[in-house]
């Protein structure tokens, strides 16, 4: 029921995203154009459709990996964009770009390295990985990686600030069908995470209880974290670090699922979040074409503040 409702919302947003842009279309016109890819639909099929598809996949991927990290660390703040994994993926991607390597591979290496670093820094012999330490260290890692990324870009582009900005905020500008193809590679990573709801649910229990219910705890944690990191990296390679999508999707999906981790809901929320931000980006400034990540941050930052306030009230920090 909730899933059906969210699918409807996502589809409605997708239709709006196809309709809005430099020239606005009525919904019937969009549907008519979709049926006619050679004639009136050329603009929609050539420009808006790939942008929409990559946005949907990126949002779903970020929402999924956000929920997984938040659940593994048992903390709603521990999403990849807060604990620095998104930023280290962006750093890896830009490194690869500068050296002529594969951007996706660079982002994957960056994301995995960021995950390992945070896990290592937040490790404590007595209590395992502490979410408080991970969040605090991640704050530093995020700043470090963003600054290093910007320094790299400024060095390579003779001080071209525009490029640095695009790479630090995330954008759907310049997306075409080749990017859609790359985005489809991410589906094998996303699929196991989409089906991991039951495992995630059990991993929230104390470890011995989860073990009694048949979850191989360390393997499940490492596997899920690696998949989520790779998914984050893959999305970052396509769109750059769209801020706060991963952070916001987890808590919102939990609210809809009565406190349970629901990967499908998180993916749908992430997808509609990015689509909504992209609609805003194109509706507010069609000429300026500001990066979509700016709008995800603008919507997401207040959500971060609400999550924080709730956490503080519960005295978790």
């Amino acid at each position: 029921m909730r899933v059906a409702l969210l699918i409807a919302v996502t589809l409605a947003l997708a239709l709006a995203a196809l309709a809005i842009g430099r020239s606005w279309l009525a919904p019937q016109a969009v549907l008519a154009a979709l049926a006619d890819p050679e004639g009136t639909g050329r603009m929609i099929w050539g420009l808006r459709m790939p942008r929409l598809l990559v946005g949907l996949i990126a949002g779903a991927g970020l929402g999924l990996s956000g929920l997984v990290f938040q659940t593994l660390l048992r903390n709603p703040l521990a999403s990849p964009d807060i604990i620095g994994i998104t930023q280290s993926a962006a750093f890896g991607a830009v490194c690869a770009m500068m050296t002529g390597g594969a951007v996706m591979a660079g982002a994957w290496i960056g994301a995995l390295a960021g995950t390992v670093v945070i896990g290592w820094l937040a490790w404590d012999r007595r209590s395992g990985i502490s979410a408080r330490a991970a969040v605090l260290q991640g704050l530093g890692l995020a700043i470090l990686c963003s600054a290093a990324t910007e320094a790299l870009i400024l060095r390579a582009s003779d001080g071209n600030a525009g490029m640095a900005m695009t790479w630090l905020t995330g954008t759907l500008n310049g997306i075409g069908w080749p990017q859609v193809q790359q985005a489809l590679w991410l589906l094998p990573l996303a699929l196991p995470l989409l089906l991991s709801g039951r495992t995630l649910d059990r991993l929230e229990l104390p470890d011995d209880l989860a073990r009694a219910l048949g979850v191989r705890v360390p393997q499940a944690r490492i596997g899920l974290a690696a998949l989520a990191a790779l998914l984050t990296g893959g999305v970052v390679a396509l769109t750059g670090p769209l801020g706060f999508v991963a952070l916001a999707a987890g808590p919102l999906s939990r609210r809809l699922a009565r406190g349970r981790p629901s990967p499908v809901l998180a993916a749908l929320i992430g997808a509609s979040f990015v689509t909504l931000a992209d609609i805003l980006a194109r509706a507010i400034s069609p000429a300026a074409l500001l990066p979509t990540g700016l709008y995800t941050a603008l919507i997401g930052a207040p959500i971060l503040l609400i999550v924080l306030a709730a956490e503080f009230r519960r005295n978790r920090y």
Binding site: L77, R132, V135, L136, L139, M165, T169, G243, F244, I284, S285, A288, L290, L294, A297, L298, A301, P302, L304, L305, L308, F312, Y317
Partner: peptide, 25 residues
């Protein structure tokens, strides 16, 4: 100890996204 940098980071990111939007528009 942890609340101040967290609240600060959240508040700063709100301010900075508004700054970015206003300047870039």
């Amino acid at each position: 100890t942890l609340r101040l940098p967290l609240a600060g980071a959240a508040f700063a990111s709100i301010c900075m996204s508004i700054v970015a939007l206003v300047v870039l528009l």
